[in-house]
Design a protein around this nucleic acid. Structure first.
Length: 645
RNA sequence: GCCGAUGUAGCUCAGUGGUAGAGCACUUCCUUGGUAAGGAAGAGGUCACGGGUUCAAGUCCCGUCAUUGGCUCCA
């Protein structure tokens, strides 16, 4: 007999050789029906893998992350089987589970196209319906290599060559075999619904110099209904796409005549952005930041000093020349060098520190053309940048204050769900970074300590640091549960050294300050894009381009409507009059579609009684109010969703 | 930058080798209304751009540009 310990601490005594499925059976039949994968101690196994010693066992259903992973990993096998059937001569490479579904990278002699998706889906489901068991077996390295040599599959051969003899396993189901580490659901029949999401090119081993493969993306579920719900979610995401809403709400535009990836803010978008900037400017003023303004270009040497030129020069916008020989400027890709020079414009004393220079600085980066995307990835964007120059003993405290500022911004804009990513150096590849080991260690320690003391939920990523220092990045989850990287805070010991920044200490000696780079929004473009998708274009009242629409019942009341608008403007409420020759139903419909929060219907009754009939977006008629009453309602609501501190 | 898809009116899209279309938006007129589309008329296009095939190209082929889904990159 063996003792099996479950995650809740319960212990089951079962015959040796019992499987995770037996464990599930011993708990309940319902659980047994839904169990699709299991972990024995720390290893993911099949539900049919015998357990022969005392062990900790965790059972997974599709509702667990691990269960989903096993489900989608297994689905990748079925996809591979279907692709082999449909595309003779196809070479399989790898097919992992991903966050939403799975993919399989193949080298296919015939192209796989969108019109083939239906065919692939049908074949996949045929294979799934065979209810073939997934069976793991060990193979010797020689045998494994022999199989793929006979198939001429150089990719699998490369994979196997990196494995040790004795740890190579194949997974069989039906007549299909694949090299595989394991972690499957019991049989193919559990997969009831499948959809090919996309095909795309992907490099073998993510290496641009290697062969380009075809990546087939798919997603599968144990129930058709779950697939339908997932597709519905995608449809919602599409409806929230900031590119679509940005156009509909007239927030921003692009023009080929201006250039790729160069966004232009339309009046409504520009005003919205200004409101966001004001929010932060006010908070920064309170927090002791000092505004600075710097040019959009800088002498090339500035960036040679900072190290940006060496690192990114070749892939950036090319230098700007002047009528004078040998004089070159660069569009600024970063604000920090300028801010360093401002720091240096006068001698600094330890008593002056910390000095916090803030600027909404527009920067230019030549992003790869294939990477451009709406407002989230552009070639000119404005950072809500600031650089804090402090004494080493101030770093931690300053860092924590910046965290507070970032969280204030998130809270004000309704991003409740976020995690902090600590991005450190890649210890394997230190040459990517500038600066001394000692400084890196100091900077990394400072970040980890500050994040911990602030009680942030953190994940650590090695190799994600900026080339001059480690970062704390804030990842927010939007209303649909998608993750976005927004604010960033970075500790930097390197640029102060490169720019030879100094201050005089109380010992009358010169010392080097530490820099903190930070941007709570990140970039205004990206932030607005994420905000649009988060709130589906229904911005918080204080931020929205138009708070009220005044809808006269007929043209007779247009003049009263204009007067009302003026009155509301005095209460700092903004809006517009819909003075079109249309019926009230039509005006309401159009205003609803524009997502204007409040509609004021104005007709004979209202004009006589000096009232407005209020209608709220998405909710309908709220009744009749005195104008002052309405002004109070709206101002109360603004306060409610704009945190004050 | 690489692989795939797409590019027709301001917007969303139809048009599969034979005279360039629809809905919405826009303009004018009628209508002056009470909580999600009132009616009529009109205007609007070098079918992304450049070549080619053809008696004939929005449609087929090649190239360029842009958009887009991925990959790689991201100070």
């Amino acid at each position: 007999m063996i003792h099996v310990t479950l995650p809740d601490g319960a212990v089951k005594v079962l015959p040796s050789g019992s499987t995770p499925m037996d464990v599930a059976m011993s708990i309940s039949e319902g659980l047994a029906r839904n169990v699709i994968s299991a972990k024995v101690n720390e290893t993911t196994v099949e539900t049919t893998t015998p357990i022969t010693t005392d062990a900790k066992v965790t059972l997974f259903t599709f509702d667990n992350e691990d269960g989903k992973k096993a489900f989608w990993h297994s689905s990748a096998h079925i996809l591979a089987q279907a692709l082999e059937k449909l595309y003779p001569g196809v070479k399989l490479t790898i097919g992992p589970a991903i966050e939403n579904g799975f993919y399989y990278d193949v080298d296919s002699p015939t192209p796989i196209r969108e019109e083939d998706f239906k065919k692939i889906e049908d074949t996949f489901l045929e294979c799934a319906r065979e209810k073939a068991d997934f069976i793991m077996r060990s193979v010797s390295k020689t045998d494994a290599l022999a199989k793929y040599k006979s198939e001429g599959n150089e990719y699998k051969i490369e994979l196997i060559e990196n494995l040790n003899d004795g740890e190579i396993t194949f997974c069989d189901h039906s007549n299909f075999t694949d090299l595989c580490r394991g972690g499957h659901i019991p049989n193919t029949g559990i997969v009831k619904a499948f959809k090919v999401m996309n095909v795309a090119g992907a490099y073998w081993r993510a290496d641009q110099t290697k062969n380009q493969l075809t990546r087939v993306y798919g997603i599968s579920f144990p129930k058709q209904k779950m697939l339908d719900e997932y597709l519905d979610l995608l449809e919602q995401a599409k409806q929230r796409d900031h590119r679509k809403i940005g156009k509909e709400l007239e927030l921003f535009t692009f023009s080929n005549k201006v250039g790729q990836g160069l966004p232009m803010w339309l009046p409504k978008g520009a005003m919205l952005r200004e409101r966001l900037e004001q929010l932060l400017k006010k908070a920064q003023l309170k927090a002791g930041y000092l505004p600075v303004i710097t040019p959009h270009i800088g002498a090339k040497d500035l960036y040679v000093t900072s190290g940006h030129y060496e690192k990114y020069g070749a892939d950036s916008f090319q230098p700007i020349l002047t009528p004078h020989e040998g004089e070159t400027f660069l569009l600024k890709p970063m604000n920090c060098p300028h801010h360093c020079e401002i720091y240096k414009s006068t001698p600094r004393s330890y008593k002056d520190l910390p000095i916090r220079f803030a600027e909404f600085g527009t920067v230019y980066r030549y992003e790869q053309s294939g990477e451009l995307h709406g407002l989230t990835r552009v070639r000119s964007f404005t950072q809500d940048d600031a650089h804090l120059f402090c004494r080493p003993d101030q770093v931690e405290d300053e860092f924590k204050k910046v965290i507070d500022l970032v969280l204030y911004v998130f809270k004000a804009l309704g991003f409740e769900n976020y995690t902090a990513q600590i991005s450190l150096r890649d210890p394997e590849n230190k040459t990517k970074y500038i600066g001394s080991d000692e400084n890196w260690i100091k900077a990394e320690r400072a970040i980890v300590k500050a994040a911990n003391e602030k009680g942030l939920k953190t994940v650590v990523e090695l190799g994600e640091a900026a080339f001059y220092g480690p970062k704390l990045d804030f990842m927010v989850k939007d209303a649909l549960g998608r993750s976005w990287q927004l604010g960033t805070i970075q500790v930097d010991y390197n640029l102060p050294e490169r720019f030879e920044l100094e201050y005089k200490g109380n010992d009358n000696e010169m010392h080097r300050p530490v820099m903190i780079h930070r941007a709570p929004f990140g970039s205004m473009e990206r932030f607005v894009a994420v905000l649009i998708e988060h709130c589906a274009g229904k911005f918080p009242l204080w931020l929205t381009p138009e708070q009220v629409a005044i809808l006269p019942i007929s043209e007779k009341y247009n003049e009263n409507a204009e007067k009302l608008l003026n009155l509301l403007n005095n209460y700092e409420i903004r809006g517009f009059v819909d003075d079109r020759n249309e019926k009230i139903g039509r005006k309401i419909r159009d205003t609803e579609l524009k997502k204007v929060p409040f509609m004021l219907v104005l007709g004979e009754k209202e004009v006589e009684n000096n009232t407005v009939s209020v209608r709220k977006h998405g909710e309908g008629d709220m009744g009749t109010f005195k104008i002052e009453e309405f002004a109070n309602i709206i101002n109360e609501e603004i306060k409610k969703n704009l945190v004050n501190n």
